[in-house]
Write a protein that binds this DNA or RNA. Structure first.
Length: 789
DNA sequence: TGTAAAGACCTTTTT
DNA sequence: GGTCTTTACA
């Protein structure tokens, strides 16, 4: 065993050595949080605590795996394999697998991913004869999810005045009924969604004292990583589990709370000291990751948020390079700049691919970077695209396996009942569903007894064949392992053959994916794990299926591969890179347009920016583009307000180009909200005139010699110079919904003009307006301030 | 019943 | 620009 206390600072050691009683570790970015957590667990084990009695909850499977490995390394043995360590979802799912029957679920319950869940919501909405334009399934699903995470059940939801008012206002008064029907349907299907894994575990502990007692005794020591990202359901579970021994250790950083949209609340971390009056608090404030420039800049940014746990994050690292601010003309130029710079840095500073990360706010931004990197021949790994298990061919195959394990799983059944085609068409399926609902039995049971319900003879034959086939698979599962059954299913259903015969590029890829799935099942079966009783853990198909639903695509990618990493900032939490490109720093994108309507959302966006800045060890680039394509349409955004929050002394603006920003055509953009007016100080230097002086204040003086903007920036298109217009004294934007073709209007910037035509969707109308001074322009009415004359 | 063309709607962020 | 859904037609 190595001397694990050696490389720790005083505070870290204090956290590691604190053995019994509640402990809260406030761990600033890069302060060695994972190191403390793993050393603490190793220390517990080294001082005699049995690994079976330790529960460690992490945010990702990846983090769990890494911690396990580190602990094994410290201890020099493999005792760590007996730890209960994993994400909230996977650990709870594992426990529920042996306890679900208490709640009336089959132990082989299916876990519905977001797609499945939305599909159930959609089915319910249709059955209730509600309009799915008003009741958008994903919208309703999100609302249900939020309710569950806040431990608000259907009845409570229906009785809550505030929630009812909200639904009424958004014209969706039936949301509560949908919620209720959705919950019942999932139960009938023997299925739990992601939120249920938390919720049902909570219900188990709450309503079954013997279960509570069992797990309280088992988990003598509980550790929770990323505590700032836990939601009320998780909070209550931990409170219950920890009540007996009170050996609860939470680690978190309120400044990095970025999962509010998933119900996470900083309250939990603030509440901890109130729940446990004798809680010991340790603050880790020394940062070992970043240069002073980067860390200081991050500290300044986060100061703009109110209400935090006071922290003073510092570092002994060198000052380092300034942060480079880069402006490009388009999103493609942004991609090109980043790829070029990576190439240049590799040569100049001897970095390799794996030293770089490109981090963005939304997944859709990845395209430009992928293209540029591919063109340059730079190897990259993209995280967060469609995961392996959400590919169509995999979902189809998995649906067969799901129906074998849990015939009540209606989503799986609907997916494969006529795939490959076997003459059970839409009419038949609708009818079976109708019968199932009327008789309150599962669709599978309807099929099993199809002859009673009077299907036509041809159909009956087809149904019978299908039922017999599935039943033969199920009985095969009784005496053969999951891998053999899966191979058999592939053969018997012709799924594999069909894909094998498809020689198109996609067909070959699909065939390979199926082979990979079969391999993964084989691997699962062949890797025995031992539980606390010494028994080999469940290697059945049911356990396999539950497990894969909870995998993310990050789990099967090698973080050490020598590739540039592309991912969202959310996905990058907990990671660090020598060189980071924080890209797409534009209003409406980051902060995202969806999150600028309240102070809370905006502060979360700012924490997200804090997270991306603090991912960088040595070098940080902050980039934004003048224009980018969105929905195939060119849009123009102002640079992000967060750029202004980076102190000038740590910023190198010479790459941001000189001259005024964002001149030329384009639909007006943010910059006029109440928030902007309050936070940008008077004068209106942003939304008003783009004087050269304003630009100089923001970007520093224009470059004196050659433009510092290299060749990748496409020359400015011949956009006619805007003839500045001074809005009339009484300028007040009109309600644009009344705007019609032919109207005469006044635009804040472009002056007077006439509407030529209005196009685009009702949701996002675009007007073509011919201005007296500035020619024809397309204006997005949602953003523009227009006065109808 | 199944396939091809046309159309709607879309993008936060994730277990 | 891309996916999912609706519609037209064989």
């Amino acid at each position: 065993m190595i001397d694990y206390l050696k490389g720790l600072n005083d505070k870290q050691r204090e956290a590691v050595l604190h053995k019994d009683g509640p402990l809260m570790i406030v761990a600033g970015a890069g302060s060695g949080k994972t190191k403390v957590l793993t050393t603490r667990i190793a220390h517990l084990m080294a001082s005699g605590v049995d690994a079976f009695n330790i529960l460690a909850l992490t945010f990702t499977n990846k983090a769990a795996k890494e911690m396990k490995e580190r602990i094994e390394h410290i201890l020099g043995n493999s005792d760590a394999r007996n730890l209960y360590i994993g994400t909230f979802h996977s650990v709870f799912a594992r426990i529920l697998r042996s306890e679900a029957h208490r709640l009336g679920y089959p132990n082989n319950f299916t876990i519905y991913d977001t797609d499945d869940a939305k599909s159930v919501v959609k089915a319910v909405i249709n059955e209730m004869n509600l309009d799915d334009k008003t009741y958008k399934p994903s919208n309703i699903y999100n609302r249900i999810s939020s309710a569950k995470n806040a431990l608000v059940g259907p009845i409570e939801y229906a009785n809550d005045y505030g929630l009812q008012q909200e639904d009424l206002r958004s014209n969706r008064p039936a949301t509560a009924q949908i919620y209720d029907a959705y919950v019942k349907r999932c139960f009938k299907n023997g299925a739990m969604d992601f939120d249920d894994l938390l919720l049902k575990f909570y219900e188990l502990l709450k309503h079954f004292p013997e279960a509570l007692s069992k797990y309280q005794h088992k988990f003598k020591y509980i550790l929770i990583d990323e505590y700032q990202d836990t939601n009320p359901a998780q909070y209550e579970v931990i409170k219950l589990l920890g009540a007996m021994h009170e050996n609860v250790c939470v680690v978190g950083d309120d400044a990095q709370s970025i999962y509010g949209f998933r119900g996470a609340t900083i309250e939990n971390i603030l509440q901890f000291q109130k729940d446990y009056e004798d809680a010991h608090v340790v603050k880790l404030e020394q940062n070992y990751r970043s240069t002073q420039s980067i860390l200081n800049a991050a500290n300044e940014v986060i100061k703009n948020n109110k209400g935090q746990i006071p922290k003073d994050l510092w570092t002994e690292n060198s000052e380092g390079e300034k942060i480079r601010l880069v402006r490009t003309m388009t999103d493609n130029d942004e991609g090109k700049y980043v790829a070029d710079t990576i190439q240049e840095q590799k040569l100049r500073n001897h970095y390799s691919n794996k030293d770089f990360a490109i981090l963005y706010r939304t997944n859709s931004q990845s395209r430009a970077f992928e293209e540029a990197l591919r063109r340059m021949g730079i190897a990259y790994t993209m995280y967060g695209g469609t995961s392996f298990y959400s590919r169509k061919e995999i979902k189809d195959f998995v649906a067969y396996l799901r129906i074998i394990v849990n015939p009540k799983d209606e989503e799986a059944l609907k997916r494969i009942i006529n795939y490959p085609a076997r003459g059970i068409g839409k009419t038949t399926i609708d009818r079976a569903l109708l019968v199932a609902n009327n008789q309150n039995i599962s669709m599978w049971e309807v099929l099993e007894q199809a002859q009673i319900f009077g299907f036509k003879s041809n159909t009956l034959e087809a149904i019978d064949g299908f039922v017999t086939m599935i039943k033969s698979f199920s009985s095969m599962l009784k005496n053969q392992n999951a891998s053999d059954v899966a191979v058999h299913v592939g053969k018997q259903t012709n799924l594999v053959k069909e894909l094998f015969n498809d020689k198109s590029t996609e067909g070959v890829a699909r065939y390979e994916n199926i082979q990979e799935l079969l391999n993964s099942i084989k691997e699962w079966v062949e890797s025995p794990d031992v539980d606390e009783t010494g028994e080999v853990t469940d290697k059945g198909l049911g356990a396999y299926l539950q497990q894969i639903t909870l995998l993310t695509d990050a789990d099967d990618k090698d973080p050490n591969a020598d590739t540039v990493k592309l991912m969202t900032i959310h996905a990058a939490k907990g990671l660090e890179f020598s060189c980071v490109f924080a890209v797409g720093l534009e209003e409406m994108l980051f902060p995202n347009a969806m999150s600028i309507n309240s102070k809370e959302e905006l502060e979360e966006e700012r924490r997200l920016f804090y997270v991306v800045v603090t991912r960088a060890k040595a070098r940080l680039w902050v980039t934004y583009a003048n224009t980018r394509y969105r929905f195939g349409q060119l849009v123009q955004n102002e640079p992000s307000r967060f750029i202004d929050e980076l102190p000038d002394q740590y910023l190198d603006r010479s790459f941001a180009g000189g001259g005024a920003r964002n001149q030329g055509s384009g639909w007006g953009s943010g910059g006029n909200s109440a928030y902007d007016r309050m936070h940008r100080g008077g004068g209106g230097g942003w939304s008003g005139g783009n004087s050269a002086k304003d630009a100089e204040k923001l970007y520093g003086p224009p470059p004196s010699k050659k433009p510092a903007v290299p060749s990748y920036v496409t020359p400015k298109p011949a956009t006619p110079k805007v003839v500045e217009h001074k809005p009339s004294e009484d300028f007040v934007p009109s309600d644009i919904s009344a705007l019609a073709e032919g109207n005469k209007v006044e635009h804040q910037k472009f002056g007077f003009g006439q509407v030529v035509k209005i196009e685009g969707s009702a949701h996002n109308p675009v007007a073509t307006i011919k201005f007296d001074q500035n020619g024809e322009k397309k204006i997005m009415l949602n953003y523009a301030k227009l006065r109808i004359l």
